[in-house]
Write a protein that binds this DNA or RNA. Structure first.
Lengths: 110, 110
DNA sequence: ATTTAATATTGCAATATTACGATAAACTAT
DNA sequence: ATAGTTTATCGTAATATTGCAATATTAAAT
């Protein structure tokens, strides 16, 4: 096999899994952290900041964009990227909810 | 290729990416949500709850355990699983930090 | 000791991901 | 128009992931 059986899970589960999966790679973490560090949107520069070839970086950017984690807008012959806060909020809420529910638990086993 | 070039990234980046990646699959999301729903630790039962064969579920549980997202303790001839709150907290903090930093931004481009 | 039940491991096929060289596309500047 | 710059796409090799049947392991129950 090798293909995830998405049809057996709920849409919500598949959606959050896709969003989370998009961040499950150090290069994509590094991209997000760089966009955060520069404290502004960045046109160009990302390729030079990462230890990977340009096509590889482009591919990672595409995945982040498809997942909705970053936005890109054309700025001359460069492209300007920045983090999409909504996606980060979704993730924060998701884990926040789990945390909250866990603290209301009995949890007398493990 | 096909192998992630972890050596080029920081330990922190690799660690958080590994943790996040472990949740980037709908079956593993479903497992976490089930453990949450039952509001207690669960001995057995997980295989019956998921639409996947037993060896597949076992493999997903192993990945969650390796990543530190769940804990398992032997309880007779069953195994009792529950969520490890520390891992969830890590994730919550990680995304919380990003959110906080983003709200302090100028963000006048995208 | 044998049987039953629950979980893990092995082996393997199908598919996905990662990475990059080569090339294309899109825009700027001269 | 031509040359330079930036980003995207294509093609492809290497590796990883997913899923399951078959089998092994472990502990309980008879």
């Amino acid at each position: 096999m090798g293909a995830t059986k998405t049809e057996h899970f709920t849409d919500k589960q598949n959606q959050i899994a896709t969003l989370i999966k998009a961040l499950g790679h150090p290069a994509r973490i590094a991209i997000i952290e760089y966009l955060m560090k520069v404290d502004d949107c960045i046109c160009g520069d990302i390729v030079n900041e990462l230890p990977l070839a340009q096509p590889t970086v482009s591919q990672h950017l595409k995945e982040l964009k498809n997942a909705g984690l970053i936005k890109g807008s054309i700025e001359g012959n460069a492209i300007c990227y920045c983090i999409d806060e909504k996606a980060i909020e979704k993730l924060q809420n998701y884990f926040g909810n789990i945390s909250t529910k866990l603290s209301n638990k009995k949890n007398n086993c493990c």
